[in-house]
Amino acid sequence: MNRPLRLVDSITELRPGADTGCLAVSGSHGGISSAHYALAAQPMLAVFNDAGVGKDVAGLAALPFLQRHGIAACTVAHTSARIGEARSTLHDGVVSHCNAQALSLGIEPGQACAALIRQLQGSGG
């Protein structure tokens, strides 16, 4: 099954119900507020920007939160992709952090975002 790819500059653009099971590539930071929008939409994978990780690792808070809900999530390095631009996340982004669910899909730090999306679409996820 070829998972639909949703490119959204803001994770708030995901549609609960309509985007369930999609591969969501966003320009949003990986903070907890973003995590709640992803949880509502239930994508198979949510990709965020690590936003420089931030104080108390706030830029990665979505990863463990979504892990607890069975959703794969990862971030791309803020030095590799522009924050707020999903196309930059997809085409320029390099994975910086992953939750265990993402690791189980074969996603790992250092991987190009475009390559991981091709991998997941080719395997049927």
Rank of each mutant, 00 (worst) to 15 (best):
L5N: 07
V8N: 10
S10K: 02
I11H: 00
E13Q: 13
E13L: 09
E13K: 06
R15W: 00
P16H: 14
G17V: 11
D19H: 15
D19A: 09
T20I: 03
G21M: 08
L23V: 03
A24D: 00
S26K: 11
H29P: 07
G30P: 03
S33K: 10
S33T: 15
S34K: 03
H36N: 06
A41I: 00
Q42E: 06
P43K: 14
M44C: 11
L45P: 04
A46E: 07
A46D: 01
V47K: 09
V47F: 05
D50K: 02
A51M: 05
A51C: 08
G52A: 04
G54Y: 06
K55C: 05
D56N: 13
D56C: 03
D56H: 06
A61K: 14
Q67F: 06
H69A: 15
A73R: 09
T75V: 04
T75F: 09
T75I: 04
T75N: 14
S80Y: 00
S80K: 01
R82S: 04
I83G: 05
I83H: 10
E85C: 13
A86Q: 01
T89V: 02
T89E: 04
L90C: 02
H91K: 08
G93I: 15
V94F: 01
V95S: 04
V95Y: 06
S96A: 15
C98V: 15
N99K: 04
L105S: 10
G106C: 11
G106P: 12
I107F: 08
I107S: 09
Q111F: 06
Q111D: 14
Q111T: 09
C113W: 02
C113M: 15
I117A: 05
I117H: 02
I117N: 04
R118C: 05
Q119E: 11
Q121D: 12
Q121S: 07
S123H: 00
